[in-house]
């Protein structure tokens, strides 16, 4: 029941888009499950996953149909959703009727919805872009995905701006963090799952690839699941006694309470050294805006000081 990872994707192939012909008016794009052709760049875009939603909004296009908007506001937070759009229900099963009503001219899905690809293609040209769960470094994947969507929608220039902004933000935030923690302090980013379970983000994950880009040493570099984290009890954190821990919200308050006050947490080095930081909600499976938001929030929280 890991719907929390719905925008994570099980794709096999890497994203490979390239315009076939620059001369013809109609442009054809090949994607993971086929190809689509557009005479003019699509403008009415339906998105079924939060990473794609955020990317489309970042490119300056208001999606006409969005899945799980309420949870988006709680878990992804930024960028803001447009004022008007059609709510198409859950990300794992977007409502076909609502989707049809939205009259999209392009539907963006991740590999997770591959089983519905044909049905969705009947409604509008559908492009499959998987940015997670493909063993690719997340930051590279979302950079590529941003460029791809920009190419399809004719927003290449805006994409380049965003990419530059990302580089600048990460460099700046990296410097802010190093200013507080010093150059060698390693950080482990985690999510609190349950009373006894945590996820520790590893090499391919968005937090770790972002930190790598910020030139911040990452604490956990071991094995991960397809989503880029390792899951287990608090003993997973034992090797990080001398490092810094950042946990990402939202977490149900009682669960957070129980974890953070448990002896097994309190007695570990990072807690005794007061090196625990609380990061406000940021989507760890998101796009470039989420990457920047993560970097900003991490830097801000580290400047603000440890949790409690």
């Amino acid at each position: 029941m890991r719907r929390s990872f719905l925008i994570a994707i099980f794709a096999i192939c890497a994203v490979a888009f390239h315009p076939l012909s620059a001369l013809a008016q109609a442009t054809t794009y090949t994607h993971e499950m086929g190809s689509v052709t557009f005479e003019t760049p699509p403008t009415r875009i339906a998105v079924t996953n939060w990473s794609l939603t955020e990317t489309v909004i970042a490119l300056g296009i208001n999606p006409v149909a969005i899945a799980d908007p309420d949870d988006y506001r709680q878990w992804v937070v930024k960028p803001d959703l447009p004022a008007n759009f059609v709510n198409i229900g859950q990300r794992q099963s977007p409502n076909m009727e609502a989707l049809r009503d939205a009259k999209p001219d392009l539907i963006l899905i991740s590999g997770e919805l591959a089983a519905a690809y044909e049905a969705l293609s009947e409604i509008a040209p559908t492009i499959v872009i998987s940015t997670y769960n493909n063993n690719q470094p997340a930051l590279d994947s979302i950079r590529k995905a941003t460029r791809t969507i920009a190419a399809v929608t004719g927003r290449e220039q805006r994409a380049e701006e965003i990419l530059k902004q990302v580089d600048a933000t990460l460099a700046l935030d990296g410097a802010r963090i190093r200013a507080v923690l010093g150059p060698d302090q390693r950080i482990a980013v985690i999510r609190i799952n349950s009373d006894a379970q945590i996820n520790v983000f590893g090499p391919p994950s968005l937090p770790n690839t972002v930190m790598a880009a910020m030139n911040i040493p990452t604490a956990y570099n071991g094995e991960t699941t397809g989503w880029g984290f390792a899951r287990g009890g608090l003993e997973l954190l034992a090797p990080f006694a001398k490092d810094t821990i950042a946990f990402i919200e939202p977490t149900p308050a009682p669960v957070r309470q129980r974890i953070l006050t448990s002896p097994l947490w309190k007695m570990q080095g990072f807690a005794r050294n007061n090196r625990v930081y609380q990061i406000p909600p940021v989507w760890t499976y998101g796009g470039l805006y989420s990457a920047m938001r993560f970097a900003d929030l991490l830097a801000t929280q580290i400047e603000n000081g440890p949790y409690r």
Binding site: M1, R2, R3, S4, L6, D71, Q74, W75, Q90, N193, S194, D195, A196, Q197, P250, P252, V255
Partner: peptide, 12 residues
């Protein structure tokens, strides 16, 4: 289904 994001804890 309607509180998916907390599912992990409930699931475990």
């Amino acid at each position: 289904l309607f509180h998916q994001q907390y599912l992990d804890s409930i699931f475990m």
